[in-house]
């Protein structure tokens, strides 16, 4: 097991290394002045240019520059945003939790809804629950999420007025940012309208979460259903049935564990799609997350911000994938002993 973890970690280091090289090369590949791309400072005078050149080691070899880059990344100096003039890392630190919050809630929703639905659909294969779930899934799978978001806004915000249209929390409440996770911050904050603020935050979360959860939910339903159907056809299920286990025991003890193993892997793979979808959702619901910020930065040709945002998002996706992979191997006795790490 320890050897396996070591292999995994070495693979992770390697992937992060490749990622850092890519990010490093971005500032050379982006159009515009190299020094501006690196520092985010425009119109600098001669002395400051000299200072910056010394800082970024522009007169030395590429290797030296890369090492300097790594040093800066680890110290939290990710350059200065061209549009806001503030530290990129500071931006990410404030904005990323909002995105993670949204993604995690969406993922929890999709797991909570998707896996039971998939199981029901497999157990009642080709009967009405399966038909119902499968057709609704097909519908949800094929609906573009920006359209779904607009439809939901139209019905629930504009017509019915049940949910707010944008933002993370109403303007009435002022929450001190401690962790930058809204719900956590509300719980940590010490002020009289605790419950109301929490409720308000949940109200704000509802629509973006539904929109974002739609795609992963449908994928999980389909995947769980197929995996479950496959497992139920296996010989060991027949044997277990012959052992005298009831249908419920059979599904809980044998079918579920085997069917969910590939699903765990799938959840990890969904993370990259989820982040992409989160960007769209954030733009539509004016959610102050890293996705919306990244898209704005792209519009504004804010190269240091794009570089930093990409690095942060890709790092997050890699780590999420790794976590899913690790938990899969912890639960699956067959892959636990696999000698080599895999991406």
């Amino acid at each position: 097991m320890r050897e396996y973890l070591l292999r995994r970690l070495s693979l992770l280091t390697f992937m992060l290394f490749a990622l850092s090289i890519f990010t490093f090369s971005l500032s050379y590949l982006f159009p515009g002045e190299l020094l501006t791309n690196l520092s985010g400072l425009t119109n600098s005078n001669y002395t400051s240019t000299q200072l910056l050149e010394a800082k970024y080691k522009l007169n030395e070899s590429l290797l030296q520059q890369y090492i300097a880059f790594l040093g800066r990344i680890t110290h939290g100096d990710w350059g200065i945003s061209l549009s806001s003039g503030e530290n990129v890392f500071e931006h990410i630190r404030i904005l990323f939790p909002a995105t993670i919050e949204l993604c995690v809630y969406a993922l929890i929703t999709s797991v909570v809804i998707g896996i039971p639905c998939g199981i029901i659909s497999a157990v009642y294969h080709r009967r009405w629950p399966d038909n119902l779930i499968s057709s609704v899934t097909m519908l949800g799978f094929s609906i573009p999420i920006f359209w779904l978001a607009l439809l939901l806004i139209m019905t629930f915000c504009l017509t019915l007025g049940w949910f707010p249209m944008s933002g993370r929390i109403g303007l009435l409440f002022e929450i001190d940012a401690v962790t930058n996770f809204m719900l956590l911050d509300i719980l940590l904050a010490d002020f009289p309208y605790h419950g109301l603020a929490f409720q308000d935050a949940l109200h704000h979360l509802a629509l973006p979460t539904i929109v974002l959860a739609m795609y992963p939910t449908t994928v999980l339903i389909r995947f769980t259903r197929d995996s479950m159907l496959h497992v139920l056809e296996q010989n060991f299920i027949k044997t277990a049935r012959a052992k005298g286990l009831s249908q419920a025991q059979l599904i809980i003890h044998h079918a579920l564990r085997n069917a969910l193993l590939p699903v765990i892997k799938q959840i990890g793979l969904q993370f990259s799609t989820l982040i992409t979808l989160a960007m769209i959702t954030e733009v539509i619901f004016s959610w102050p997350g890293v996705g919306r910020w990244l898209i704005d930065s792209i519009y504004q040709r804010d190269y240091p911000a794009i570089q930093g945002g990409l690095l942060a998002v890709s790092m997050f996706v890699i780590l999420a994938n790794m976590t899913a992979e690790l938990s899969h191997s912890l639960l699956d006795p067959i892959s636990r002993n696999k000698a080599h790490g895999k991406i």
Partner: peptide, 10 residues
Amino acid sequence: EPSLCLDPTA
């Protein structure tokens, strides 16, 4: 095929 008749995860 006995090995296929045993649950691989238990």
